[in-house]
Amino acid sequence: MIAGVLLALPGLAAATELRGYSVDGDAIPQSLTGRAGDATRGRALVVERSSTCILCHSGPFPEQKFQGDLAPDLSGSGRRWSEGQLRLRLVDASRLNAETIMPSYYRLDGLQRVGAVWRDKPILSAEQIEDIVAYLVTLRE
């Protein structure tokens, strides 16, 4: 099911090479792009049904009638996790929990059952990751 949803994602990440990053404990402290993302674009990505976020997560998105309940509510994300912790969860949540159902949005190696359209490409670009992080840190309540 998740693989089918991922095939429907808009704007397949154009970059085929990942930008380098360093993991420090449970976080990626530095921006993947070297600059902050745009929270408005990040919110649009989160609520876009085909981006998969709200298929599993719920949150403060009153305009979205159907929201997921398989994963933590995104309300208060910016209070619960640092920018770097959010970034790692988006880049590769399996580093924190090998059994997670959350896709690795910015990882290419060691993946199984990857559709042909997604091989050798991240699901989200570095810019999209930073935009989502910029939005999630604003969710303080």
Results as ranks from 00 to 15, higher is better:
G68H: 03
R19L: 15
Q67E: 10
V5S: 13
R19G: 14
Y135W: 00
V133A: 06
G59H: 07
R79T: 07
T100Y: 03
P29E: 03
G76Y: 06
I28W: 06
A3T: 14
V117F: 10
G25F: 04
D26A: 09
Q128C: 01
E99S: 14
G34L: 00
V117A: 15
C53R: 02
V133N: 02
Y106Q: 11
A27Q: 03
L32C: 15
V47M: 11
L88T: 01
A39G: 13
I123H: 06
L7Q: 14
T100K: 08
V114R: 03
A14C: 07
A13Y: 03
R95N: 06
A116G: 14
E99D: 15
K121M: 13
I129H: 06
S22N: 14
T52S: 10
Q67N: 12
A116E: 13
T138R: 06
F61Y: 12
L90E: 00
A98Y: 14
Q112S: 13
K121E: 13
Q112M: 12
V46H: 06
G4N: 09
P103F: 05
S31H: 09
R79I: 08
V137W: 05
A71R: 12
G115Q: 14
E17D: 11
G11N: 14
S94C: 09
R87F: 04
R89M: 01
S75I: 04
T40V: 12
D38K: 02
P103A: 12
L70E: 14
P29N: 11
R41H: 15
L45S: 02
V91A: 05
F61S: 01
